Simulated scan of single mutants.
Amino acid sequence: MSYFEALMLALIQGLTEFLPISSSAHLILPSAIFGWADQGLAFDVAVHAGTLAAVVIYFRREVITLLRAFFGSIFKRQRGKEVTLAWMIVLATIPACVFGLVMKDVVETYLRSAWVIATTTIVFGLLLWYVDKYSVAQDDEYQAGWKKALFIGLAQAVAIIPGTSRSGITITAALYLGFTREAAARFSFLMSIPIIVLAASYLGMQLVTSGAPVHAGFMLTGIATSFVSAYLCIFFFLKLISRMGMTPFVIYRLLLGIGLFAFLLNQ
Rank of each mutant, 00 (worst) to 15 (best):
Q143K: 12
C233T: 15
C97G: 13
T121Q: 11
F18I: 15
T164L: 03
F218Q: 13
D139Q: 15
D44G: 09
L265Q: 14
K239C: 06
G50Q: 07
G145T: 03
A49I: 02
L190Y: 09
I160W: 09
L232Y: 14
E82F: 04
G153F: 09
A53L: 15
F261C: 09
Q13R: 11
I160Y: 06
V131E: 05
A10P: 13
G145P: 00
R79V: 12
A114N: 01
D38L: 11
I74E: 01
V107H: 07
I64R: 08
M103V: 02
I21P: 13
T170Q: 08
T16M: 05
A6I: 10
G217K: 07
H26E: 01
H215T: 07
C97P: 01
S192I: 06
I94D: 00
G163P: 10
E108H: 08
V131A: 05
L111E: 11
I12Q: 03
E141H: 13
M1D: 01
E17M: 12
T221G: 07
Y176Q: 01
I161N: 03
Y58T: 12
T109S: 11
T121A: 15
K104L: 04
A159I: 07
A118Q: 11
T84G: 08
F227D: 12
D139V: 01
L29Y: 00
A262E: 11
Y134C: 06
K148S: 14
V228N: 09
L240Y: 15
F179G: 05
E182W: 03
K81Q: 06
H48I: 10
Y130S: 00
V55C: 00
G40Q: 08
S167Y: 09
L260E: 13
V228T: 13
T164C: 03
E108K: 13
I94L: 14
T247A: 12
T84I: 08
T164N: 01
F235R: 14
R243G: 06
W115H: 03
V107N: 07
F179S: 05
T65M: 10
I152C: 10
I193L: 01
L29P: 02
K81G: 00
A183K: 04
V63R: 01
V250D: 04
G40N: 09
A159C: 05
L175N: 02
A32M: 15
I57E: 08
V55E: 06
T65G: 05
L91S: 13
M205N: 10
V107G: 03
T51K: 04
S201A: 05
L101W: 08
L232V: 14
T119G: 07
G217Q: 08
T109R: 13
S73F: 09
G204V: 05
R79C: 00
F71I: 09
Y252S: 10
M244P: 00
I33W: 09
F187W: 06
V47C: 02
A155F: 15
A174N: 06
G50T: 06
R166E: 12
K81N: 03
T93E: 04
D139C: 02
L220T: 12
V158H: 07
T119N: 00
V63Y: 01
A32S: 14
G204Y: 06
A49P: 01
I74W: 06
F235V: 11
L111H: 10
